[in-house]
Design a protein around this nucleic acid. Structure first.
Lengths: 227, 227
DNA sequence: TTGTCGGCCGATCGCCGACAA
DNA sequence: TTGTCGGCGATCGGCCGACAA
């Protein structure tokens, strides 16, 4: 998928080392992130970190959930070939790769009202004014159809209206279909991005589902007396 | 899955040879039924039929479409071991296997009205009276909840009512959910079966989708003048 | 006996401004 | 500026008997 949309969906916390750069690979850390249990051979010594070169890089998105992920192929570097002065060391190059020209994008976490069936989507003013196509404010009310491509290139249409007192931007018709098809719930995020060719793109970022992953809706009883 | 429900779904045209019986295996015929093209080695001679023994038999159903199919394991029999007087030869044994005690079952092809959203299911009288649980006709109107297990063991509930003038049997509440979940369309068939333990089962049989597979809704233009 | 239709009623969808955080 | 709510109008789902094939 488009690397810019990929990065917008992944968020700025996610840094991917450039192609051919040198990185540290931590087998133990990798194993702890995997879902299954990984058994290292206890008989042989296992290095805590391995110097590698990034030999291939693929930006992908899950065909069902739209969640983005990357396939990074690492090739070990023999110890005697390691050059600690190498400018390609990823620690040095992170944040300075050639893709740093970021297109305009905006992410919003869905509120209950956004995710409710039968509701629309409250568009933050900044998003409507800088990401969406320009709205004709002379109309009453100002309305347009916003067209956006998702990570699979699929087209989604939304009715964008500026109404209410006080005035605010809303997505109405088309929004609930999107929410249902993508199975979005309150807490998930939506990403709008204006690509360099002017096309509008839309991506999603699922809320963390693991234990302690969400504190938006704290359960009652935390303040109970039974310490 | 239950062999009786399997046979009811497959239909009476489908005969499965009994375990350990002797059968003819036609490689060429098998290849012609496969979706992909199968290349036989032209260099070596290939026998038109092979004597085999049925060494294993599995009655299965597709987890998504509910369509039934069988896995039949065949072991070739050396020519000198073939006994043409063998009573296990499948040609002789077909239709006389031990499972010939057929439980009460009924199949109906769905009409447009049956498959329509917002409609119910017209239950043929024979099905309602011989397959469904006995209805209390003293009530006005006579109503009951019919519970049926599908090929996966999943439970489905239908409201069975006897009403209208003239009186007829109908499935109402629960029916459209079933149609939508199973993605049934007019032309598909539904199978009701009363198992020996008294449980009611429900299976489906998809309409043939291939070319010329359906002549229920003939396209216009067949009688046109242009030769 | 049963397939299709129109009627009809209730539930849901979804657009709206009011209001307040 | 924007999250939530109640209102309410349009649409849809789905149950019904009439009617006819």
């Amino acid at each position: 998928i488009d690397p810019q949309l990929w990065h917008a969906c992944a968020g700025s916390m996610v840094q991917i080392p450039p192609l051919n750069s040198t990185v540290f690979y931590f087998p133990q850390g990798h194993a702890e992130h995997s879902l299954g249990s990984v058994n290292f051979p206890s008989s042989s010594r296992f290095p805590p970190l391995i110097f590698c070169r990034v030999s291939s890089l693929k930006f992908l998105a899950d065909s069902e959930t739209d969640e983005v992920y990357a396939k990074i192929k690492l090739v070990p570097i023999p110890a005697n070939e390691i050059d600690f002065e190498d400018n390609n060391l990823s620690l040095n190059s992170v944040g300075s790769d050639s893709e740093s020209e970021k297109p305009a994008s905006f992410a919003k976490t869905l509120t209950q009202s956004d995710a409710n069936n039968g509701g629309g989507f409250s568009v933050p003013r900044y998003c409507a004014e800088t990401i969406f196509p320009r709205l004709d404010y002379t109309a009453d009310p100002p309305v347009q159809t916003v067209v956006a491509k998702d990570v699979h290139g699929e087209i989604w249409k939304f009715r964008h209206i500026y109404r209410g007192t006080p005035r605010r931007h809303l997505l109405t018709t088309g929004w609930s279909t999107f929410v249902n098809q993508k199975k979005l719930v309150a807490g998930d995020s939506i990403v709008f991005l204006r690509a360099q060719d002017g096309d509008l793109c839309v991506g999603i970022r699922r809320a963390k589902k693991g234990i302690g992953g969400g504190n938006e809706y704290p359960s009652s009883g935390w303040n109970s007396n039974n310490g």
